[in-house]
Structure formats: C-alpha cells, structure tokens
C-alpha cells in the first residue's frame, strides 16, 4: 500500500484502477494506456527491426536466434491455420503476439512500483500523490483490447468482401445454416451474431483475463506482510496466463482471417 493507513482498501484499489486521463467523457484520452502501449510497441518494433537489419543467413547471433524462434513459432502457426497467400497475416500475427505479450507482461511489475515512482516524480512538481494515477498494464484498459479487436474486425470485413465480393459476403451471411428463403432473415441474425461475437470476444477475453489478474494482484497487495508468498504464487501463475492470452489472441486472429478467406 502506497500511502499508509489513511485510505481504505477500496480506495486503494479504485485508485490503482483509474487511468491517467486527459479530457472529458468520450473525448478523454488515457495517457498511461497510450503511453505504455506505444512504448512497448516501440520496444517490440525496434528490437525486431535491429535484428531484421542485421539478419544474417549464416550463423546467427544469440539475439537473432531468440527473435527467429518467435518469428518461426508465429510462422508455423500461421502456415498450419491459414492456407492462402496473404502477406499481411503473418506480420499481423507477430505484432499482435509480441505486443500483447509485452503489454500483458507489465502485469508482472509489482502493482505499486510504477505508481510510486510516478508519484515521486509528480511530487517534484508539487502534485499531491493522491492525484497521480498510473495504470501500467495497457491490456487492462478495454480501449486497448477493443482497438486491437476492431483492427482485426476491419480486416475480417475487408478480406471477406475482397475474396467473396459483396454479393458473396451477403450470401454467406443469409443463406446458411438454413437453406430455405423464408428463413433468410433468421440466418442473417444468427450470422451477424457470429460475426460480431468475434471482435467482442477477442477484446473482452483479453481485457477480462488481465483486468481480473490485476485486480487480484491489488487485493493481494492489501493483505499486509503475508502478501509476499501469495503475490509470488499469483505472479508464477501468470507465467501461464500472460503468454497464453497473447497466443490465443494471435491464433483467433489468424483463424478468423482464414475463415474470411474461405469461399463457399
């Protein structure tokens, strides 16, 4: 707990789950989510770019080996799921996997570390600790996960129309699962639910898992000295959760785009 006994557990948790925000209502921008996600994205891009620039076809260095392992892993998954030719899918999958993994990995940073540092820095400018908000795990912000999911959803729609044509896409949405014309409206409702459930489930699954994980970390942080072993156990459990959620997001993206390419 950051600032002693004068705040309750509830206030403490609420404080940690509030974003650093600029603007009001819909026009608000979460500086912390945006900042951390862009920072982590740049870490990913710059690390991989430096390897790509110096990539040798001969004996690779250790960093190149590590990066190639990730790239090879993503490439294998793309090739086993997606059978067409599309130069966007694999880089998209790689970006999603590594970026989401890095953002999820912020969950491992002790919950009070970054807010405390931020409060110390803000204190130099005369800002009260209570007014400093930092939520350092971008994927616990639905704005982040929905942005990813909407990006994928846009690609699903784009490729569906590109591969099948508008007519083909509409036909796919209306003529199945029931073949009779009188049931087409019902088909359309069912198919729309299926279609819209995809980005929604993508976004909410990632958000839900990470938000819940972060919430438990915060709850553990309120139980006093005994938190240390419990905290360790929960962090160890996240060795499973964090890569798994990144992997699921990547795999479902590949799968949905592969379905979008299928012409019936």
């Amino acid at each position: 707990m950051s600032s002693g006994a004068e705040i309750t557990s509830q206030e403490y948790i609420k404080h940690h789950l509030t974003n650093l925000s600029v603007g009001e209502g819909f026009m608000a921008v979460h500086i912390d989510t945006l900042g951390w996600s862009v920072f982590l994205g740049l870490v990913f891009i710059m690390l991989f770019r430096s390897v790509a620039k110096n990539a040798t076809t001969g004996v690779p260095g250790k960093l190149q080996c590590a990066v190639e392992m990730i790239v090879g892993f993503v490439d294998d998954n793309v090739k086993s799921t997606f059978h067409g030719h599309n130069p966007v899918i694999a880089p998209l999958a790689l970006t999603i996997f590594v970026w989401v993994f890095l953002m999820n990995a912020m969950d491992w940073v002790p919950v009070d570390l970054i807010p405390t540092i931020a409060q110390q820095i803000a204190g130099l400018f005369g800002v009260a600790p209570h007014d400093v908000y930092i939520k350092s795990v971008p994927t616990t912000d639905p704005n982040m996960t929905f942005a990813l999911a909407l990006g994928v959803f846009a690609l699903i729609i784009y490729y569906s129309i590109k591969v099948k044509g508008i007519g083909g896409f509409i036909k796919e949405l209306t003529t199945q699962p029931f073949g009779h014309w009188s049931l087409y409206p019902i088909n359309f409702i069912l198919e729309m639910v299926t279609l819209l459930a995809r980005p929604l489930s993508l976004a909410l699954r990632l958000f839900g898992n990470l938000y819940a994980g972060e919430l438990i970390f915060l709850l553990i942080a309120t139980i006093g000295l005994f938190q240390l072993p419990v905290h360790f156990l929960w962090a160890a459990f996240h060795i499973l959760i964090i890569p798994l959620q990144a992997f699921i997001f990547m795999m479902l993206t590949i799968l949905y785009l592969s379905l979008a390419h299928e012409d019936h």
Binding site: T33, L34, R49, V88, L92, T95, M144, A147
Partner: peptide, 22 residues
C-alpha cells in the same frame, strides 16, 4: 467500461506497428 478516444489512438498505433512490421 470506459470507451473513449484512447481507442482511436490505440487503433492508429496498432495499424502503424503492423504496417511497419509488414
């Protein structure tokens, strides 16, 4: 749920990162 302009910013960041990666 607190959706706002952050989403647009993240979407732009996402598109830029994917295109750079590609």
């Amino acid at each position: 749920m607190n959706l706002n302009m952050t989403l647009a910013g993240e979407l732009i960041a996402f598109i830029v990162f994917v295109m750079f990666c590609m």
